[in-house]
């Protein structure tokens, strides 16, 4: 186990290096440069040359890449052109809001997805067995921003419960417990949006896996020895169905981070996704690469955690063979 962990962790920097290398050349290959965004709506030739020189963009790409990676190895990711501050100073404040949105949404959508998925199998009734998956699929098919507006109209405008935008109240500066309650209120709608959009995937997966499991002989044995259908599903079928569910979960993190961009935009949530959009729009090369680095790191770590959860769920998986 320890050996396996060590191997996996040592692979992370190599993977990150490859990602960063490919990204460097891709982002520089995109047409355009940061000049127009930095200057505003009117640019002179002299200004253009000044900026291009200032950021060393007039040098050959190979020279630029050597310089960049030399600095990266020493931990220096450069300064953001747009924010005029070190890349990680810009990124660091945005990581927590993104995680605050993604991690609870995965946990909640998984929990409710499993519960609802079990319900569809537990009750043979038509309304529940068909109704829940259809409803979940409809919500899944709604464009994220539209779903966001619907939730705002209902919860904020009509019921007046939750605030619409931002991470905290702009009018008062709150402290301590009041501040956390305020953040939680602001988190409610974006989190709900994220949970709803993921729910369908989990529900359908759980339903299809469980439907298979309950056909198996062991399930019939469990029923015939007198177990109730409910506890047979929960104690016998569900543990066997969990493994693929966790696998899908692990691969979902990557999609989630990109998927959260729309949610962040609609609710003005100050996460990494929105920062990435700005960085790409203005061709802020160091910032784009810094964000990609950070996102890759988060995804790699989360994937590692999911892999470790395997061992808890299924003792048959033996990590010794990896080493």
């Amino acid at each position: 186990m320890g050996h396996y962990l060590l191997t996996r962790i040592s692979q992370i920097p190599i993977t990150l290096g490859i990602i960063l290398g490919i990204s460097f050349f891709l982002i520089h290959a995109a047409p355009g440069d940061p000049v127009a965004a930095l200057a505003g709506d009117f640019v002179t030739k002299e200004y253009r040359d000044l900026i291009i020189q200032h950021y060393g963009l007039d040098q050959p790409l190979i020279t630029q890449s050597f310089k960049y990676f030399k600095n990266v190895v020493t931990g220096d990711f450069g300064d953001s052109y747009y924010f005029k501050a070190p890349v990680f100073a810009v990124i660091s404040t945005r990581v927590l809001p993104t995680l605050l949105l993604i991690v609870p949404s995965v946990v909640l959508s998984t929990f409710f997805g499993i519960v609802l998925g079990m319900l569809t199998v537990r009750f043979k009734s038509y309304t529940i067995g068909i109704g829940i998956p259809i409803l979940a699929t409809i919500i899944y098919a709604l464009p994220t921003f539209w779903l966001g507006y619907l939730l705002i109209l209902f919860f904020s405008i009509k019921l007046n419960i939750f605030p619409i935008q931002g991470m905290s109240n702009p009018r008062y500066s709150l402290e301590g417990l009041e501040y956390y309650i305020d953040v939680f209120k602001h988190l409610a709608l974006p989190l709900l949006t994220m949970v709803l959009t993921q729910l369908a995937q989990v529900v359908l997966l759980v339903k299809s896996r469980l439907s298979e499991e309950i056909q198996r002989p062991y399930f019939k044995t469990a029923l015939s020895k007198g177990l109730k259908r409910q506890s047979a599903i929960f104690n016998h079928a569900l543990p066997n169905a969990m493994l693929p569910i966790v696998t899908v979960l692990g691969t979902r993190f990557g999609f989630l981070i990109t998927g959260s961009i729309l949610t962040e935009t609609v609710f003005a949530w100050p996460g990494l996704g929105r920062l990435m959009i700005i960085a790409i729009e203005v061709r802020d090369y160091p910032l784009v690469l810094g964000i990609l680095f950070m996102l890759s790191l988060i995804i790699l770590i989360l994937n590692l955690i999911t892999d470790l959860i395997y061992t808890i769920l299924d003792p048959r998986i033996n990590f010794g063979s990896y080493g």
Binding site: F145, Y149, I164, T265, A268
Partner: peptide
């Protein structure tokens, strides 16, 4: 307050 979406 920075709110990127005009409808929001």
């Amino acid at each position: 307050q920075i709110i990127p979406d005009s409808i929001t």
